[in-house]
Design a binder for these strands. Structure first.
Lengths: 199, 199
DNA sequence: CGCGACGTTGATTTGCCTCAACGATTGTGG
DNA sequence: CCACAATCGTTGAGGCAAATCAACGTCGCG
């Protein structure tokens, strides 16, 4: 008798929200998953390593970020509970990543190897639809974010961030928000103390 | 007796490079395609319209761009021959687009309705794999571009652009390159006239 | 030919960064 | 439970990358 471990529940639910999986198919997916705990500030992946896993967040929150030549961090993505995170370039091409991924809170995560995903596409065809949908939606999000970074001021980008991720803001250090919208913590602090300009 | 119009050849080839399609399946896809010619500077989609089509470029070159509140254009994407282009947010959610799409050269394009795509996923399952792969790769590209825009200087971004799209540069007005990498045409001109700093 | 789009150049401005110093808060080990 | 260090946010002075505005030369094209 097979069963699905508790720590895979959230991930399976995420899939079932988008596509239909038989019990058997759920087992096949579940069989490829590895659960892991990650303490706050601990690195999962470091710049220079090849990232072989898609990462699903059960609880807590991760972030991916690059470090520029001056040592400054630039956050590409936050991944709270229920979200996936990965460096797609490294994952797809099996090349060394230029991103770091770490936990910003104590977290429980689920790892899925890219190799296993490619196999699962044959045994669980619906999974291909799931990841197509996910990729498309993620693509839409990154397109929008790039447009914003090209055409909006820092204050407007901050406003957008607050609107789009109101729940993330709670307990998130300001300097992470600054890094995400592409400004320094000092400048964000000054922005917030001023009499809130338009937008 | 069915056959595939010439103007669908390049698109079908693009699919066959990634997945296997039977003759019958090729016909099914081909049956949903609409070819169209677009003269230089002519708009295909305008800000505020809902974009219902994925667009494949047979020849020529298109661009997608937003216009900010000061009237400045910001180019999100170039699409030369063999590339797809669309505003994913508008396409997926059927909401008004914030992007314009126009031709920067006389072009021939092929249109594919989002509704037809969704139907084709049932009759041509391999198509789902094709678009999954495309979305993932596009996602990787946009992730990288966002990292670059967060962590690199204008000169470095220009260098990257030249490395990544050497063939695009030919005949492309400088102001479009400037808009793509997120600077003004004046500043790009000054950068290029100066004794080429590091990188 | 003449007009409009493009690139160039210079003077000036500005949005955001850098560096440095300083409280406040958190958390940690003794 | 306190003392101390580390982390975080704040504030100020000064600096720089890139924008703005304007003028001008050139080229391609109708």
């Amino acid at each position: 008798m097979l069963y699905t471990p508790m720590s895979h529940e959230l991930l399976i639910q995420s899939i079932l929200k988008r596509v239909v999986l038989s019990d058997k198919e759920q087992q096949l997916v579940s069989g490829c998953l590895k659960t892991k705990k990650l303490k706050k500030k601990n690195l999962l992946y470091q710049e220079g390593e090849v990232q072989h896993h898609l990462v699903f967040v059960n609880s807590g929150c991760l972030r991916s970020y690059s470090i520029d030549k001056n040592g400054a961090e630039h956050i590409l993505q936050f991944a709270p509970s229920g979200w996936w995170i990965a460096d797609m370039k490294s994952l797809l091409n099996a090349v060394p990543s230029s991103l770091n991924i770490d936990a910003i809170e104590d977290s429980e995560i689920v790892l899925l190897k890219q190799l296993d995903i490619d196999n699962l596409y044959h045994t669980v065809p619906a999974l291909e639809r799931y990841f197509r949908i996910l990729s498309e939606r993620s693509l839409a999000t990154f397109q929008q974010r790039l447009i914003d970074s090209l055409s909006l001021t820092a204050a407007e980008r901050y406003g957008n961030f607050c609107e789009r991720y109101p729940s993330l803001i709670q307990g998130l250090p300001q300097k992470y928000v600054a890094s995400y919208i592409g400004i320094t913590p000092e400048f964000l602090s000054k922005m917030l103390s001023q009499p809130m300009k338009k937008r």
